[in-house]
Amino acid sequence: MHATFDLDRPANLAAAFALLKSEGAAALAGGTNLIVDMRAGRERPQRVVSLDRLEALRGIRQTGGQVSIGGRTTVTDLLLSPVIAKTAPALVESARLFAGQMVRNTATVAGNIACGSPAADLVPPLFALDAKLTLVSARGRRTRPIDSFFTGYKTDIRRPTELISRISWKAPTSRSCALFYKLARRKGDAITVVGVAVALDVDRGLCTRARVALGAVAPTVIHAREAEAILEGRPLTPELIDSAAESASAAARPIDDIRASAAYRRHGVRVLVRRLVTQAWERLA
């Protein structure tokens, strides 16, 4: 690689925090973004702090109704975990369609979040789960909802000395359904054109909770808040679902780029929100 930098492999979190304080330090987890960006000259850290020995950042746990996964959980770990299969099926679907095998084997959940890309596939399902992020640093820890983590295109509230140590969510009830769809040129190794995650809770014929999260159609992953409000508290009808889909499409702020036009993305949001909400509702009926 043309870039030059120092590399450390701290054996514990305290040592990692000390290293992350130094000028131009960058944390390295799976490396599937950072190493590519360093090679291309987009990132020029002076010191790379590899997290590969930090076992504290691994592990998938369920305690009662609460699920918590370490930031260094890989995409493949998600695919192999019975806890994830049971509590986060939409996340499993996004993990299945994530890049290629070797990237899935190393790319981490925290890395996918921290890269800040609006096309990060694990993020819409985590929005739909109302996931919380635990950020740790030498000064302590704070927990923030994932939907308040991003501040703009590839920007977020994480300080350079902080790590996303855990991602957690409440295990859904049996009266809920979550789905994810990735619209892309291919099923494997493709960057998302539109990613939609939908989660519905149903109780006595009413939709009691609706989440509609959109990927790759705005500077960050976003909630389609108005669409969610349209669906909540009502029995869902085709007309209501249509109007939620229309609202989600209006909430999207897509751009034209090499992968698709903004108009196509807006259309994709409309079609996919309608399709996923209908499927989720029918499954719960």
Binding site: L28, G31, T32, A40, S50, G100, V103, N105
Partner: peptide, 26 residues
């Protein structure tokens, strides 16, 4: 050299990874 083609895949502790996205020291 960006994790798309898989030509550099090796097993590390039994798991396939792209060697181009792995630092030698790690």
């Amino acid at each position: 050299e960006k994790g798309d083609c898989g030509a550099c895949a090796v097993l590390v502790d039994g798991i396939a990874v792209d060697a181009c996205l792995t630092m030698a020291w790690t």
